Simulated scan of single mutants.
Amino acid sequence: MTDDTFNMSMRKFLKQVGVTSQQAIETAMREKGDTAGQTFQARVVLTIDGLDLEHVVTGRIDGMDKDDTTA
């Protein structure tokens, strides 16, 4: 596999992770309703079979106003 092929496949995977994760978070926020003033602790665990890789990313996501939940 060339470096270009590797980079393209990795970017495609990471884009899919980012887009689908954002959609899932937005859906959960809309279902919860008004989350203004709340902070949610987030944790993502990435594992790759065959590479013995476990990568953990933590952070926070601030809630959104009720008016923003219809976006």
Rank of each mutant, 00 (worst) to 15 (best):
T27S: 15
Q16G: 14
A24Y: 08
K32Q: 15
N7F: 00
R43A: 08
G37S: 07
I48G: 06
V19D: 15
E31F: 14
G50F: 00
G18F: 01
V17W: 01
D68F: 12
E31P: 00
T69P: 04
A24W: 06
R43N: 08
T20K: 11
M8A: 11
M1R: 00
A71Y: 07
A36E: 12
K32D: 11
A24D: 13
D52H: 05
L46Q: 04
T47P: 02
T20H: 07
V17L: 05
N7T: 01
R30L: 13
T5F: 00
K12P: 06
V44K: 04
T39K: 01
K15F: 05
M29G: 10
G59L: 13
G18P: 01
G18L: 04
A28I: 08
D3Q: 12
A24V: 08
H55D: 13
T39E: 01
E26K: 14
R11S: 05
T69G: 14
I25P: 02
I61D: 03
R11C: 03
E26L: 14
D34C: 10
F6D: 00
D49K: 14
E31A: 12
I61V: 06
I48W: 08
R30D: 15
T2H: 11
A42I: 05
V57Q: 03
Q22Y: 03
A28W: 05
L46E: 06
K15D: 11
F40C: 00
A42S: 13
D3Y: 09
M29L: 15
G33F: 02
E54Q: 04
L46D: 08
A42P: 01
L53Q: 06
R60F: 07
D4S: 08
G50T: 03
T35K: 06
N7S: 04
I61Q: 01
M29P: 02
D68W: 13
K66R: 13
Q38D: 06
D34R: 02
R43G: 04
A71T: 10
T58A: 05
D65C: 12
L46S: 05
A28M: 09
D3R: 06
E31S: 15
Q23N: 14
D52T: 02
V44E: 04
D52Y: 02
L51A: 07
A24G: 14
R30C: 14
T35Y: 06
R30V: 11
A24Q: 14
T70W: 14
S9Y: 07
D67Y: 10
K12E: 09
I25T: 10
T20M: 09
T2Q: 11
L14V: 03
A24T: 12
L53M: 06
L46R: 00
M8S: 07
A28S: 09
T27A: 12
S9T: 08
T5W: 00
Q22A: 07
T20D: 11
K66S: 14
